[in-house]
């Protein structure tokens, strides 16, 4: 029997090199009016750059609950984060979290607007409340008011998946009113895995178990794993925080840059990874393009979204 050598073609190597290192892309955010007033809690809470290795624990709130309440939700960056009051067909209610990427465009988890599990399909309407908070005297405050969105979009792969593709669980609410002009909006980025690995991530949203969905809670930690389409981290979250922004800051004075959309507790982390972590679908290049498409759509008069 003659044995011959088979060498991997150069063309394949070149193609792999291109696939392995897609260029990073960044869409700038906007601070919004009055941004010269600095949030003390943002200075204390948020983390930047890359972090040291950490251990693992066991639950969605992983080990000790490290979430901190955000007191000054009327300031940047907290005010760009919105409590969502979702109404489904037949009067079903739910809560989630969203965040502005433009004056009329609020990104959230796909299942906050389209879910077989929770709504049997599309939600009817979502009330978007940026920077909602409860004062010490118990009064609920909405520093920027609220707006109800009835036009929504999700990634088609999510809609087709019967709620079974966490990698594509991203959606958006298109508002008629430019509420984001009052709050500013987040920048977002598509970063290749090798660039994202090891970053500290920040997550803030409106959980049901603390503050009853009326108060914003924040936590941060290091990224544990960057998958092809999802990022995994040991950051405490709970029901109601679906759709929250997962952001990095490349330096202490750098603007927040959202890289993923929080959606899942530890149950959605593949056991093959050998980690206990929560997770979020990443803003990969294809999704970056779709977010820009949703933004572009919202600069036009209100119409159905393609």
């Amino acid at each position: 029997m003659a044995i011959e050598s088979l060498t991997k073609p150069e063309a394949l190597l070149a193609a792999e090199a291109t696939r392995a290192a897609p260029p990073s892309r960044r869409h700038e955010g906007r601070l919004g009016p009055g941004a010269d007033v600095r949030s003390r809690s943002a200075e204390v809470f948020t983390v930047s750059g890359r972090g040291e290795s950490i251990g693992f624990a066991m639950e969605t709130v992983i080990g000790t609950d490290e979430r901190k309440r955000v007191p000054d939700t009327d300031l940047h960056p907290w005010r760009k984060i919105c409590a969502l009051r979702i109404r489904g067909p037949g009067g079903t209610g739910a809560i989630g979290t969203g965040w502005f990427i433009g004056p009329r465009t609020v990104v959230t988890a796909g299942h906050c607007v389209f879910s077989q599990t929770f709504f049997g399909g599309w939600a009817d309407a979502v009330e978007v409340i940026p920077g909602q908070n409860r004062q010490q005297n118990g009064t609920l405050i909405r520093p920027f008011g609220s707006a109800v969105g009835r036009r929504m979009s999700v990634l088609d792969e999510w809609a087709k998946s019967d709620d079974r593709e966490p990698d594509f669980d991203i959606g958006c609410i298109h508002l008629d009113e430019p509420l984001g002009d009052k709050t500013g909006w987040f920048g977002f980025a598509s970063l290749p895995p090798n660039e994202l690995a090891g970053f500290m991530v920040n997550i803030s949203g409106y959980p049901s178990d603390r503050g009853g969905g009326d108060e914003q809670y924040f936590a941060s930690n290091r990224i544990l794993h960057v998958g092809e389409r999802r990022v995994f981290y040991d950051v405490d979250t709970h029901g109601g925080q679906s759709g929250a922004p997962v952001w990095i800051q490349e330096a202490d004075d750098a603007p927040p840059l959202v890289v993923a959309v929080h959606a899942y507790g530890i149950g959605a982390t593949p056991t093959s990874l050998g980690i206990v972590a929560n997770s979020a679908p990443r803003i990969i290049p294809e999704i970056y393009d779709i977010l820009e498409g949703w933004l572009e759509h919202d600069t036009q008069p209100a119409t159905a979204v393609g």
């Binding site: 209610g93 879910s115 669980d169 899942y264």
Partner: peptide
């Protein structure tokens, strides 16, 4: 917990 991964949304009782 469920037989498939489910996300972190919270339903509101009527």
């Amino acid at each position: 917990e469920a037989s498939v991964p489910l996300p972190e949304i919270a339903l509101v009782a009527d």
